[in-house]
Write a protein that binds this DNA or RNA. Structure first.
Lengths: 160, 160, 160, 160
DNA sequence: AATGAATGAGGCTTCATTCAT
DNA sequence: GATGAATGAAGCCTCATTCAT
């Protein structure tokens, strides 16, 4: 399901496989918990990035925050994004929550400035998608670039 | 691997499981073949979209072509994108080819107008990521919108 | 069943797989046919070796004939012997025929000289087993030895 | 491979199929383990049989020990011998070890009394082959005979 | 007479889950 | 609380066999 087996997870966490089932109901429960933590980090970062900012200023700040997330939590962002695009999703709940969290700061701002909610979420999805995609492109193919350079490239793409 | 079993694939194709193995070496071989076809479609569409266009014009045309791909080949785009973000990839080859194909029209244009290759591919990744992400957002959450409306939302996100 | 697939057999015979089923009822039928040919060769050789000889003379001659069979038809002897010792045997018929053929010259001679039939076949099995086993030992581990040297070693083992 | 499926092995052992894979890496691993145990028994029996004996005395004792092995561990001897004559062998290692173990007592004795090593192993192979072949002939076709009778038949075959 | 594409039963292996300790 | 041996459903793949051409 995540192509990472419970055995691998237990081994890399240095605990026994049975212990995972002692602490979580199922593999889905474990993944939900991991995703919830990832979402909490996202909430915190985006709140800091959005607080007191609107318009182009907020957008630039959100882009930088998302790139930082990608750089610091590559593994969980990778899983998150790859699951976002999956059809069958046992943990749809958390996936949807993650999406909502990621889109909110920009979508809310657009709605506040008069945009239609559906259009706002499409535009927010475009910006978030641009940031995460460029972020992974960065880490996989151009890791020598700095965070600032990548942020500036994404913002350039978002201005014509 | 793709979380779609060979049994399911055979059943939905109306053929016997063994027949898949008569025509392909392995499941990875089958997926490679599907990806190759998806890439061919992408090549064709993007070539049409780019031909004779440069700059903002080409970008708008590419965005529209990618949205059309998402709408018409949702399943294969979904698989493609979700695999793009995976770590372990038995068919890394085709995935990389797909990425190269998707980025080329915009990256080449940026390089032609003087941009650094690395920055060009980061900007191209941002635009492609914006299009695909908004495209899936569209199909999953706002299927009542038209292609034109979504294209216009993405292009709006890419101009401020 | 023989751990050699019909595909391999067809390929190495340079014909189509379907043609095997055109000429034989089943894989078991094909194997039966191969075994029958192997047995015919065995019959011929052992007849030549036994004709006009009895006692130690016949035994020495049979040992030499079996070693020649091993050297010239290694593959089929290998299959034959390895199947002889298998439990489940779809073609038990031919296997038993092969055994009978191999034991007959020596068993008959022993019976003719007054031995009990059961004891005669046990003694014949010992001599045949000694020849075939030493023959394969020869080809696998000491291929540089000559037929005469190996025959003499086996006969030495059979005389104290 | 061994023409005995993992399902059958698990069923006849009264455990679940998965349990085999918890305890062994693969089917080959399981077979290796079984062969290793069979070889240990062979080592013990042959050591007892050889200890303090040389020449014809040792040979007679080894023949009796091999016949006892065949009688008491028919299944594993059958597999062992039939695999010995096979070409492709994933577990070649254990097979060769089994051969070495079976030949050693007689080959060593022959070398000690001045024989050339290659000839010694050919003669040892002849004696071991005679014993195992006659042993299986005994169990399959003349089960009413006693161990002593069969031993005496084999030894008779080995003395003229 | 011959072919080879297609089949499906059955084999090996993985892995989420359970449970006795 | 924690463990890890054991399980069995489900996945990938092989291969003897069939059949339309």
């Amino acid at each position: 399901m995540t192509s990472t087996s419970i055995d691998d997870i237990a081994a890399s966490a240095g605990i026994a496989k049975g212990s995972i089932y002692y602490n979580f109901d199922s593999k889905a429960g474990l993944v939900e918990a991991i995703m919830a933590r990832s979402r909490e980090q996202l909430v915190t970062r985006l709140a800091e990035a959005s607080d007191g900012r609107t318009g182009a200023d907020r957008q630039a700040s959100v882009v930088r925050a998302l790139l930082a997330m990608v750089a610091e939590h590559t593994a969980s962002v990778r899983v998150m994004v790859s699951e976002l695009f999956r059809e069958e999703r046992s943990w749809a709940e958390s996936i949807k929550a993650w999406r909502d969290t990621a889109l909110a700061p920009l979508a809310d701002d657009l709605v506040a400035s008069g945009a239609d909610p559906a259009e706002a979420s499409l535009r927010a999805a475009a910006v978030v998608g641009a940031s995460l995609t460029a972020g992974l492109e960065w880490l996989v193919f151009h890791p020598e670039r700095t965070h600032a350079e990548v942020a500036s490239a994404v913002l350039a793409a978002l201005s014509r």
